[in-house]
Design a protein around this nucleic acid. Sequence first.
DNA 1: AATTGAAATGTTATATTGTAACATTTGATA
DNA 2: TATCAAATGTTACAATATAACATTTCAATT
Lengths: 165, 165
Amino acid sequence: MHLSYSSVFPDSEHDHQHCVSRALAEAEQICHDQGQRFTTIRRKVLKLVWQQHKPIGAYQILEELQQEGRTAPPTVYRALDFLLKLGLIHRIASLNAFVGCIRPGAAHEGYFFICSSCKACAELNAAAISREIHQTAHNCGFVVQNSAVEIMGMCPNCASTGKLQ
Amino acid sequence: MHLSYSSVFPDSEHDHQHCVSRALAEAEQICHDQGQRFTTIRRKVLKLVWQQHKPIGAYQILEELQQEGRTAPPTVYRALDFLLKLGLIHRIASLNAFVGCIRPGAAHEGYFFICSSCKACAELNAAAISREIHQTAHNCGFVVQNSAVEIMGMCPNCASTGKLQ
DNA sequence: AATTGAAATGTTATATTGTAACATTTGATA
DNA sequence: TATCAAATGTTACAATATAACATTTCAATT
């Protein structure tokens, strides 16, 4: 028995605007609870990160922001650092990119399945993987602090539409 | 019942020269078997990667090579790409760094435990982790192509000597 | 409303990591 | 020893990220 994973890779027809507005509302709440300011820039950056279920690079975000006025890299990285610190986004090291966290606020280690074809990125909180990692670590006398688990492969959407690679 | 992990983090007293010479000998053999040239530069770079059980950055390697004459980044990256292609080293995405592969030649996914204190990096071929990742992927309709599993934490050596962080 | 001070953002410059493109050298094979 | 593909040299630059200091904003207090 395990959680249903049917929706980890949302289909292209889902109401993504709903994902975005939920993420922004949750962020608002979390910032409020923690006495942090959810400024315009932070909101814009979070919204851009959530534009798709795909990791986005810092300089892509920068480009978008520059559509509406001069912006420099530190502005973007500061907002990203803030959002990372509050657990509102994750960084995907193997892609130098960022993706919205689907369970902000909840303490968790994010495990990521990333489609090498469409770049869709699914975060899951797989207890079974977590258990094995911690168990293996324990056997080695190693104490886990945090994990980067980034699995590349083919997502169900791309697999079913017969895409290669 | 599981494999013994007693030596995944070799202690600081182990005969590291033995690790290095074994790695070089294995590389020699693998290159020969595959009709690839184990050139001077490739050997030097592999040796530098193996100098410690810690990931090393490309520009650190570059610096070492520059001790004995002018060298430019592409030279280093080409050697690293070659060594990666032959499975003689792994890249640690979360550190932008490279580490020697402990089982070159054998098809495997490398899972890494990295000490946040001493930076020691242990590669292990943990069947249990692999199984859970593939099982979870299967439940999601996801087909695994390759994995980056990089776990940060405290290694047994640092834990026992009471180091913090 | 004015003051104030810490947090946030602006700005400039630069560090770090990685690659494109073309020239030259090397080395195994004919 | 001639040849050609593979390897390396060389120059320039792209992509990602941060340091350091100036300015602005905003919420709490006077």
